[in-house]
Design a protein around this nucleic acid. Structure first.
Length: 932
RNA sequence: GGGCGCUUAACUCAGCGGUAGAGUGCCAUCCUCACACGGUGGAAGUCAUAGGUUCGAAUCCUAUAGCGCCCA
């Protein structure tokens, strides 16, 4: 059956087809491996996107990298599980639905809790799958049979179990503390959910009259409205300016309340006036100071950040309205004594951007220190490695300065806290299931606490809850700890750190199936409670101007639009090729356009191959193809290109090069150097395979009457087997085009359902051929020099020219002689004449260390241009030579530099002398014969 | 305030102790029977600045400037 492919590659046509095929055929579904399984395992948890999410470049990068690593492992014979799912995203989702309600003129309270949650579920059903559908377009090879949602019943049960256990262990407590409060979302949020922003603000100075004196104490504040809740003034004990006021009281302006002057470290003498107001209910530092001095806590705001009844005449005002009013009143009564410009870091809600208010409220917390200690240990001991390495330190710094985690949220959408309050005695009972009666007073009037848990509480448990925890399952024995986590720096603390803490705590004592652990290469790891063995933190994708993408800036690049225009493969390749670890990616379309061209190049190389396959009537011998699924990473039986039968220099050369590139690509992937892997393949396929190998074998393929048919078949076979191997090498990065061509090679009857299940190429050292590589380099050098001379002599492209060649080394002469056809074809040469003497004195000649070549053509060369070029070359050589000699005459260099380097420089010196003399001669000759 | 990163060809980026690289763009030329999303040839960089370490620095150290990020 002849292969018919369109002349140019159209990704849109094939990509959706394969994406659907992979899902329909369940190619990436992984059943639980039975006892006795000895193959290596690779497990990766997809960072669950929010149900509210739309695919952005960050996801695309993340998923591209994961898919590359996952496909690479799968092709190397690992049992490879990539687990997908979505996160219920408490605040974000609730906001979406609230917004929807707002359009109908309703608020969530109008519906009531139950109806509202029903509404969210409806919303989730309708829109929640959007991001996963987008993911499918990327070709992500996840196990869709294991897809989860963080609010699934089994996961919810696990969440309750975790909560109860932590509570019973005394690691969860409830209390009234200062938390970050978002007045718009009407909920507490964690420190991590507050984003600080530098803004130009004011610093106001207010003076408080000291009772019993005619003195004043002046304090500075950026939030004057909180003064209504002041319960003390603090000065530093060491500050002599205030010693005489110790023990005295001041009269709080506007409120006419007497409050004490206390001494506390909170007041720093060198800062401002050295005295500070203390507002325990509205500032975390003041809260601590208040505890130390047993000060009352006066809350002056409500949950909407409006002043409450404690604010006296200001009750009911919005916080900023109140500020204005208070400043005016202070001014009027002579208490306001200064106003300065001041830049302050304003905390804003990560979700909605509203300015956060520190607020005293009853919340649930996790006592983090005991959990953090083990999580620190896991990273410090190397049980978990973080790549790039610098994130390790960042992680440790954070963990060492961690605060208790506020886990309760005053939302409706999320995992409701499994705690019940007794209506009668107010006793709070924490339990797995709703208690029938209060254990303290026996009352049956119990109401569940209305708060829900922070979204990250449940996602922090995913590495084990998705594997069936709290039951002990075979899945856990096999797949836990997961092997790798690939994620963005942004959620290192939100998510990664918490998974480590929870994993180390709840999976303590867990042991992975020893046979599988060993086969997977983790035998040296002692701790199987960690949620993953390795963490790879990927870069941020910025726009072409290095700006962080954001909706407000309007510079968001939509990956789906890029995919539409250039194809998924090209987009994936771009992200891979630009993903040098530790550096952010400035996404540039021109690069993607370049990689679309690469896809087209591959496509056309395939067309070329099929054209010859069809013409020769070649039958691809499937048996000899090294397709052995399921071989382990150490099994080298499929190594190299086993069905390749090298006959000629170019055969030996390309085979050697393929094996070297294979080694480099495998190494690069093993250390997450995606850019290196992508670039190696690109250079090989385009620069070596297409530009040289395909050109070189054309004469052997173009068999006509009287030609050697066997040779044509052998080279056709070599072409196909090398192409097949190259496709497998490239597959993890460009899954679609490789799948399409691979199936075409097998004329729709491949030995496996997908190239994704075929083995990944491994280098075979026996197929390295240094001689072939050296000889090929000389041949390429010769051809390039001839082309170069032709261009300079302005020889018409179609005209073939004779050349003279001086090559003193007999072996090189023989090699060129043997490959003269290549020189003739690729250099447009019609006759090669070997000569006895150097050709450097001739115009229109080039020389290298190994040969001189002269193109015979009647047209005179441009003497001035040639002189210019040679002079420039000479300058460069002289400079290098001078440098070279300086080093070689330096005794310290000779004494200290490694032998290899010295030897290299010596050889280079010889070459340089030779080249320099040749150019000098050429210049002399040109000056002698050429026009002035 | 603390911490981190970046500054290499016009643009976007690799390289991170031993002779400056890629892609795009640019110039010239060629629609040669896989590919003009192509071939061939070419031009283009005191590797931010100033010191230091070293036989040798784009690469290591220190300082400065500019840009950016994170944490408080």
């Amino acid at each position: 059956m002849p292969h018919e492919l369109p002349k140019s590659y159209e990704p849109g046509a094939i990509e959706t087809r394969w994406a659907e095929y992979w899902i329909r055929e369940k190619l990436f579904s992984v059943p639980t491996p039975p006892e006795g399984e000895t193959r290596p395992v690779f497990t990766l948890l997809l960072p669950p996107p929010n149900v509210t999410g739309r695919l952005h470049m960050g996801h695309m990068l993340n998923q591209t990298q994961m898919d590359i690593i996952v496909r690479w492992h799968r092709m190397r014979g690992f049992i490879t599980l990539w687990l997908p799912g979505t996160d219920h995203a408490g605040i974000a989702t609730q906001m979406m639905v609230e917004r929807q309600l707002a359009k109908e003129g309703k608020k969530r309270r109008d519906l009531g809790r139950e109806k509202f949650i029903e509404r969210v579920w409806e919303w989730k059903k309708l829109y929640g799958g959007a991001i996963l559908d987008q993911m499918k377009r990327l070709g992500a090879s996840v196990d869709w049979d294991r897809e989860y949602f963080t609010m699934d019943e089994n996961l919810s049960r696990a969440v309750r179990e975790v909560f109860v256990r932590l509570y019973e262990e005394g690691l969860i407590y409830r209390g009234k503390y200062i938390v970050n409060w978002c007045p718009r979302c009407e909920t507490a949020i964690s420190d991590l959910e507050v984003k600080h922003e530098e803004v130009a603000g004011k610093l106001w100075e207010i003076r408080y009259p000291v009772i019993g004196t005619n003195e004043f104490i002046t304090v500075a504040t950026t939030r004057p409205e909180t003064m209504l809740g002041d319960t003390a003034i603090a000065v530093n004990a060491k500050d002599d300016r205030y010693t005489h006021l110790h023990g005295k009281k001041v009269l709080l302006p506007l409120m006419n309340r007497e409050i004490p002057i206390i001494t506390d470290e909170l007041a720093q003498p060198e800062f401002g006036t050295g005295a500070v107001k203390v507002t325990p209910a509205h500032d975390p530092n003041d809260f601590q100071a208040g505890k130390r001095h047993h000060l009352p806590q006066i809350d002056v705001m409500d949950e909407h950040a409006h002043m409450n009844q404690n604010a006296g005449p200001y009750a009911g005002l919005d916080r900023y309205e109140a500020r204005k009013q208070i400043l005016a009143d202070l001014q009027a009564h002579g208490f306001l004594v200064g106003e300065k410009d001041h830049t302050l870091a304003l905390g804003k809600c990560d979700r909605c951007g509203t300015v956060v208010e520190p607020r005293l409220s009853e919340q649930w917390f996790i006592k983090i220190k005991p959990l953090a200690d083990r999580a620190i240990e896991a990273v410090e001991s190397g049980e978990i490695t973080i790549v790039p390495d610098n994130y390790r330190q960042i992680y440790l710094n954070w963990m060492n300065n961690i605060y208790d985690w506020c886990i309760s949220r005053q939302l409706w959408w999320g995992h409701r806290i499994p705690a019940w309050t007794c209506d009668n005695c107010k006793e709070v009972t924490v339990a797995r299931e709703a208690p029938v009666k209060c254990p303290k007073c026996g009352s049956t009037k119990l109401e569940q606490v209305s708060d829900v848990l922070d979204t990250w509480f449940s996602s922090g448990l995913l590495p084990f809850t998705t594997l069936g925890w709290p039951e002990k399952t075979r899945d856990q024995a096999v797949f836990y700890p997961t092997t790798l986590l690939i994620t963005a720096y942004e959620i290192l603390f939100f998510w990664v750190a918490r998974m480590i803490m929870f994993g180390c705590h709840f999976m303590e004592g867990h042991q992975q199936d020893p046979a599988i652990k060993k086969a997977s290469g983790w035998a040296d790891k002692k701790n199987d409670s960690v949620p993953f063995r390795q963490v790879y933190i990927h870069a941020l994708v910025r726009d072409a101007d290095r700006q962080k993408m954001s909706k407000t800036k309007g510079n968001v690049i939509d990956p789906l639009e890029i995919i539409e225009r250039f194809g998924t493969d090209a987009t994936r390749f771009t992200l891979a090729a630009m993903a040098a670890p530790g550096t952010d990616i400035a996404f540039s379309e021109s690069r993607t356009d370049g990689y679309r061209a690469f896809a087209n190049k591959i496509w056309n190389a395939a067309r070329f191959m099929f054209m010859n396959v069809d013409r020769i009537g070649f039958v691809w011998n499937r048996v000899s193809d090294p397709v052995k699924p399921g071989q382990g990473p150490d099994d080298s039986s499929g190594a190299g290109v086993s069905s390749f039968n090298p006959q000629t220099l170019e055969d030996r050369w390309i085979l050697s090069r393929f094996n070297r590139v294979t080694a480099e690509v495998n190494d690069a992937l093993a250390t997450y150097r995606f850019h290196e892997a992508a670039n190696r393949i690109y250079d090989f396929f385009w620069g070596e395979f297409c530009d040289w190998y395909l050109e070189l074998i054309k004469p052997r393929l173009n068999f006509e009457e009287g030609a050697d048919k066997t040779q044509a078949e052998i080279s056709c076979g070599n072409l196909v087997s090398l192409f097949d191997a190259s496709l497998r090498l490239l597959h993890p990065v460009m899954p679609f085009i490789t799948e399409e061509i691979w199936h075409a090679i097998y004329e729709g009857k491949p030995p496996l359902k997908s190239i994704a299940l075929a083995p990944y190429p491994q280098p075979d050292e026996r197929q390295y051929d240094l001689n072939a590589e050296t000889e090929m380099a000389i041949l390429q050098d010769l051809i390039v020099n001839v082309r170069n001379l032709r261009a300079e002599l302005k020889v018409e492209p179609k005209i073939k020219v004779p050349i003279d060649l001086f090559a003193p080394d007999a072996a090189i002469r023989a090699m060129i002689q043997q490959n003269r056809g290549a020189v003739e074809r690729l250099g447009q040469v019609d006759k090669i004449t070997f000569v006895e003497n150097s050709l450097v004195r001739l115009a229109g000649a080039r020389s290298t260390a190994r040969f001189d070549v002269h193109v015979l053509y009647e047209r005179k060369i441009d003497v001035a241009a040639e002189c210019g070029r040679l002079t420039k070359d000479l300058e460069k050589l002289e400079k290098e030579f001078a440098n070279n000699q300086r080093q070689l005459s330096n005794e310290q260099f000779l004494a200290k530099a490694p032998e290899k380097v010295v030897e290299g420089l010596r050889r280079r010196a010889e070459e340089l002398t030779l080249l320099r003399d040749k150019i000098k001669h050429q210049l002399e000759e040109l000056n002698r014969t050429g026009p002035k």
